[in-house]
């Protein structure tokens, strides 16, 4: 029994990471109907930037977020203003193709710079520290921090969307771009701010990913799939739904792995497919108002 509780708790904690993969994806699609195929590769890019920062400055990965987050946000802003804004229009295909190309460029660029060797960010003693919840149930300190950060990120995004002028501009631009322009909003800037925010979240996700496990230039697309699955399970347009989607995906994978180590990814995909089939709008779709 405690074994299963342990499995589910581990799944919940990893679900926080998946929710962070998903949140940036959902944000971008919500604001500008852009499906960012390069999302996973940008997560890996963030991990490599964190690698350079930690090695170059000799700081630990969590501290490196102070630099990695603004660097990624800046990359997001420039990427949107300099490239992706030109792909937006009535057709969903051009941004899809351009971000697909971007995905290939990032993967190969990282391969060229860092080789195909696996890397990992070293967080030191905190990596093996645990806390005892009850008799027989131990949680890793790092996964718990990761989950708390994920909840904070989701709560922060939710507050930003519904409590700030920038969030209002995001929602208005999402509703009606020409009229948003009439209100004096430069939608190119609004979109770039959304991409900056998305990549700031990606930066956090990338650092936690890189502390948790090995990474190499090729692992981006799988992270993109996890993000997509979490978004679809949770329901588009709802940040808390995205967190729930991430947790459901994480728990499904953990249960699958417990039954048979080879079933981890399969179990996640099956649960995703089942929810897509039974409830295509997701479990917690956006409610108006």
């Amino acid at each position: 029994m405690t074994e299963w509780i342990n499995v589910i708790l581990q799944g919940v904690l990893i679900g926080g990471l998946y929710a962070m993969f998903a949140a940036g994806l959902s944000l971008i699609f919500g604001v500008m109907r852009l499906v960012n195929i390069a999302h996973g590769d940008l997560i890996v890019l963030a991990a490599y930037i964190a690698l350079l920062v930690t090695q170059g400055l000799g700081i630990d990965p969590l501290t490196s977020l102070l630099l990695v987050v603004p660097i990624m946000a800046l990359i997001g802003y420039v990427l949107q203003r300099g490239l992706l804004n030109f792909t937006l229009g009535d057709d969903l295909l051009p941004p899809l193709l351009v971000t697909f190309g971007l995905s290939i460029i990032i993967q190969n660029g990282l391969l060229e710079l860092f080789t195909a060797d696996s890397r990992k960010l070293q967080a030191g003693a905190i990596e093996i520290q645990t806390v005892q919840l009850t008799q027989g149930i131990w949680l890793g300190v790092l996964p718990v921090i990761q989950f708390i950060v994920a909840v904070a990120v989701i709560a922060g995004l939710q507050a930003l969307f519904y409590r700030t002028a920038l969030g209002r501009a995001f929602r208005a631009t999402s509703d009606d771009q020409p009229v948003a322009q009439l209100m004096g909003l430069d939608t190119r800037h609004v979109f770039a701010m959304a991409m900056a925010l998305s990549l700031a979240v990606i930066a956090i996700a990338g650092v936690f990913l890189a502390v948790r496990a090995n990474f190499d230039p090729s692992i981006g697309p799988a992270r993109l799939i996890f993000g997509f699955e979490a978004v679809i399970i949770g329901g588009l347009g709802s940040m808390w739904g995205t967190l729930a989607g991430g947790i459901i995906l994480g728990v499904s994978q953990a249960i699958g792995a417990q039954i048979n180590p080879g079933w981890q990814l399969l179990a996640g995909h099956i649960v995703f497919l089942a929810i897509l089939g039974l409830r295509p709008q997701g479990l917690f779709p956006k409610v108006s108002g």
Binding site: A165, R168, A169, R171, A172, S174, D175, D176, P178, V179, A180, Q181, L182, M183, G184, L185, D186, T187, S288, G289
Partner: peptide
């Protein structure tokens, strides 16, 4: 957006309020 900042406002045909915003949020935007 630049014309709006220079002081030209258009009330578009069909009203086109932002549907996912409240009345007050529409005014604030």
């Amino acid at each position: 957006f630049a014309m709006a900042r220079r002081g030209v406002a258009l009330v578009p045909e069909g009203r086109r309020l932002f549907p996912s915003l409240t009345v007050e949020e529409n005014l604030l935007i």
